[in-house]
């Protein structure tokens, strides 16, 4: 089907060819973030884990890696995209019925089987709630997982994502604690960084697994607080942001010391990051 192939019949297909995905729903979540529900036009392997990512793009604007925010197992893929640059602003102009072009899923996500029976403490900062939502939705309300707590920090009340869903998650037995960075208007909740809420979370070393996703600056402090509460590095999971260009373990952009985040990550156990000083 490609016009310019000048090779033998057994040559591999281009791994860069994206699949068209129809936008079936767009939800404006905040001034900057929109949720896009996507249905791929041609059959593709759609089995993904929470924590994995897709490359999504538009012809003429390029492509970038985006975390999956929907729960696995559905027929749709949801990406929550913050408008910050050329590509993401162009994606925000795509409405229902339009198309994004995707490749994936890529990377290693969360092993939800391994997490069975564990108490889970989710710690999300800012847009880190986006991939966290995929994991939360995969396990929320299920009896085969232990206690659940979400600690979520946003800059301002207007930047809180998935607020409605959080009430739903609370209804299903999850403890939800939200904090904002600076006091604002009618906000009656907690003010301060996410670590200010951590003393209120029930953390039981040996039974609790903590999951951290947030801006790079957040990890160090949250990890310090978790270690003080007695959590072992094996029981702390992190998802590390890098700007992948290929998703195939080749372009080098996501390399953390000797490890390609697009292949071995983006989800890591903290214990796996020993010897990777560039990780955090």
């Amino acid at each position: 089907m490609s016009l310019y192939v000048n090779t033998g019949a057994d040559s591999p297909a281009s791994p860069y060819l994206p699949v068209g995905a129809v936008v079936t729903r767009v939800a404006k979540l905040t001034d900057k973030e929109r949720l896009f529900a996507l249905a791929p036009e041609s059959p593709m392997d759609f089995a993904y884990q929470p924590g994995q990512f897709f490359m999504a793009g538009l012809p003429g604007y390029g492509e970038a890696p985006f975390s999956i925010t929907s729960a696995p197992g559905g027929r749709e893929l949801e990406l929550c995209i913050r408008a910050v640059g050329n590509l993401t602003n162009a994606i925000h102009r795509v409405s229902k019925g339009g198309r994004l072009w995707i490749r994936g899923p890529f990377g290693r996500g969360f092993d939800t089987t391994e997490l069975k029976g564990r108490d889970l403490v989710y710690i999300a900062g800012g847009i880190g709630i986006v991939p966290m939502r995929s994991l939360i939705k995969a396990v929320v309300g299920r009896g085969d997982y232990g206690g659940r707590t979400l600690i979520y920090g946003a800059k301002t009340p207007s930047e809180i994502l998935f607020q409605g869903e959080m009430d739903e998650w609370s209804g299903k037995g999850m403890r939800v604690m939200v904090t904002i960075d600076k006091p604002a208007g009618a906000w009656g909740g907690n003010v301060g960084v996410v670590t200010t809420l951590m003393p209120k979370a029930e953390i039981r070393p040996g039974r609790t697994t903590a999951v951290i996703i947030g801006p790079p600056v957040m990890y160090k402090f949250v990890i310090m607080a978790l270690r003080q509460r007695g959590l072992r590095d094996e029981d702390i999971l992190v998802s590390l942001e890098r700007r992948m260009k290929c998703g195939l373990g080749k372009c080098g952009h996501c390399q953390i010391n000797g490890v390609y985040a697009c292949q071995c990550g983006p989800v890591f156990k903290l214990s796996e990051l020993k010897g990777l000083p560039e990780a955090l």
Partner: peptide, 19 residues
């Protein structure tokens, strides 16, 4: 060149140039 695309109809064609 990895792909040629058409921004109007969204067509993408892989390009493998191997002289």
């Amino acid at each position: 060149t990895l792909l040629k695309f058409n921004m109007e109809d969204g067509g993408h064609e892989p390009v493998v140039d191997a002289p």
